[in-house]
Each structure stands twice: as C-alpha cells, then as structure tokens.
Design a protein around this nucleic acid. Structure first.
Lengths: 110, 110
DNA sequence: TGCTTAATTAAGGAACTGGTTAATTGCATA
DNA sequence: TATGCAATTAACCAGTTCCTTAATTAAGCA
C-alpha cells in the first residue's frame, strides 16, 4: 500500500486517475490538459504503474492506459477499517461522557 | 489531501494511527514498539499533525495524541467516488461486450 | 538546587521526488 | 529511404523525506 498512497499524494497523478476513470486514454490524451513536459507525465504514469493503479498496452506508437481497481480496493478497505475502529472509540467515549453527566445530575438532586 | 495521502504512505505512520484508533496515547507509549530513535517518532508525529490526522495536547511533560476523523473522511470520499466512477465504466464495458456477443450469435443463426 | 524523565529541536547525510532539456526508440507514411 | 510523430530514456538539479546523534527545553522530585 505504500506505493499506492504515495502515488495518490500527488495532485497531477490524482487528476490522471480521475481522467482514466472516465475511460482508457493514450499518454498524449492524458498529458494534453497539463502545462508540463511529456517526460514529466511519463514519469507520473510510471509511478502509477509501479503502484499497479494502471496498466499500459501498446498499439503502434501509442500507449493506452487503463485503470486497475484492486489497489484502490485495498486502500479503501484499510481506510474504512480505520474509520470503523475510530468511530467505535468515539461512540464509546460519548457514551462515557453521557454516563458521567447522568451521574452528576443524580448527585445534584437525588 | 496531498499531506494526508503522503502521511499514509509510510508504514510506521500507519501503525501509529492504527494504535491511536484504539485510544489516545503519549509519544512514549506510541514509540515503544518501534526500534527507532525518539526523534524519528517525533518527526513522524509531526507529519501526522501537519496532515491534521492527529492533535497533540500537553499535560506536564507528556504529550497526548488523539486521532482526528475529518481528513480520513475526506480521502475516503475521494476514493469511494473513484471506485464508483470506475465500476460504472466497468459495468458499461461488460454490458457492451455482452451486446456484441449477442449480436454475433444472432449473426450466426438468424 | 541538582537529577531524572519526556519530548523536541538542531544539524547532517543518503536516498527519493518532481521537474527540466536533450537524445533515443519505434512505428507509419510520403 | 527520409521524415515525422508518440513516447521513453538519460542526465541533471533543487527540494524533500527519513533516519541518525547531540544538544536543548520543560516538568517533577529528592
């Protein structure tokens, strides 16, 4: 997951992924909206590829990029697990505070 | 979100967060399981703090760290949105392939 | 006051990131 | 075959990351 999170930490790469979520595209198509050199985009795509977030297929001189869902599924599971754990804790804490307040009220007028 | 994803890209920091999901802890308590110098942990915690994933409260010479849910909620929303988009595309593609196969079959024996 | 403990700051180094320009590869086509 | 286009590789640079050890801050206690 290290590489996946690191890949997602860059806004250019997140934009590339968002574009790819709308369908396959060639390197040129992906690069067009950015004011950045072709090699820079090429390197970003390499990072996404090493994180297994995209695959590259060659036809003639064009490379077509496609998204791969698995790594996103994996980070999703980690994050949702964390949120579950954390929310459980928060709920328990809230419960605890409620109990304390109830005890306080009962102490005031028994 | 840049800082949040970057913070999550390091396994030591993910472990620190996982520990904190079980409840608040001091720097010392968090550092104990790691074979790493105290300053190293301190710096990891600073990264988590800058990503607003944790808050630090001081009591005497102890710092108590607590998780903050918001940034995790934000990355969760981004990831789930991406997964939705991507799955929609996948389903549409599958549908398309099915239609093509159906057409083929109808062409074979009309 | 001096000592101990918890933690941070300071300084430094090796490796990695994110960009650049220039050169190269691979394919298609006049 | 020469030319052009899509894309990558190579080489380089500035800035960042992740770790270290040494020094410093701040609080509690004999």
């Amino acid at each position: 997951m290290n590489r996946v999170f690191a890949a997602l930490a860059d806004p250019t790469r997140r934009a590339l992924l968002a574009k790819l979520a709308q369908g396959q595209a060639t390197v040129g198509e992906l690069a067009a909206p950015f004011s950045m050199s072709a090699p820079a985009i090429s390197q970003h795509l390499k990072v996404l590829e090493r994180a297994e977030l995209v695959t590259r297929t060659t036809q003639a001189q064009w490379r077509t990029l496609s998204l791969r869902a698995e790594p996103l599924d994996e980070v999703s599971r980690w994050i949702e697990q964390q949120r579950r754990d954390w929310n459980l804790r928060l709920d328990a804490l809230e419960q605890h505070v409620d109990n304390m307040q109830k005890l306080d009220r009962e102490k005031e007028k028994p």
